[in-house]
């Protein structure tokens, strides 16, 4: 389906003056890849030469009918897991994937404990010494 769309875009653009060098899908995939020579930019956004080359490669592979997964795997083979902006779902990286869920559960549990304890304390009678109680009684008698 996507190939068809690309071919159609290609045909349509043949009729127009401009040449669509890079399809929007290139940027979508590029946003999932790290620019290898930049400090912290994606392949979609970086202005560096190597990112430009990678975008052209992605475009070529899209036209050739490769899927997003295959294109990402292509770069992963050459640059390692590190080039993927989404860490792979295996090994130590599972910690990162699990962490939001763990944090969420932890937060909910702690919150519930805190509220439960607060409500119990509010319901429990005050711990007051008999002296203080006598003082309050005396003051009340005076007032009224």
């Amino acid at each position: 389906m996507r190939v068809l769309a690309l071919i159609l875009i290609g045909l349509v653009s043949l009729g127009q003056a401009q040449e669509v060098l890079l399809d929007p899908r290139v940027f979508e995939i590029g946003r999932q890849l790290r620019c290898p020579t930049c400090i912290a930019e994606t392949v979609a956004d970086s202005a560096e030469g190597i990112s430009g080359e990678m975008r052209l490669i992605i475009q070529e592979q899209l036209v050739a009918g490769k899927s997003e997964g295959e294109i990402l795997a292509f770069f992963q083979e050459r640059y390692g897991d590190w080039v993927l902006l989404d860490p792979p779902r295996r090994g130590i990286y599972l910690l990162v994937w699990a962490s939001p869920v763990v944090v969420g559960l932890l937060a909910v549990v702690l919150l519930m404990i805190y509220i439960r304890r607060g409500q119990q304390q509010a319901a429990a009678p005050l711990d007051v010494s008999s002296d203080e109680l006598e003082r309050v009684r005396a003051a009340l008698r005076q007032e009224g």
Partner: peptide, 12 residues
């Protein structure tokens, strides 16, 4: 076409 660089995982 700079493809050999990409194939080798060139950083610069």
């Amino acid at each position: 076409d700079n493809r050999l660089g990409v194939d080798y995982g060139l950083f610069g």
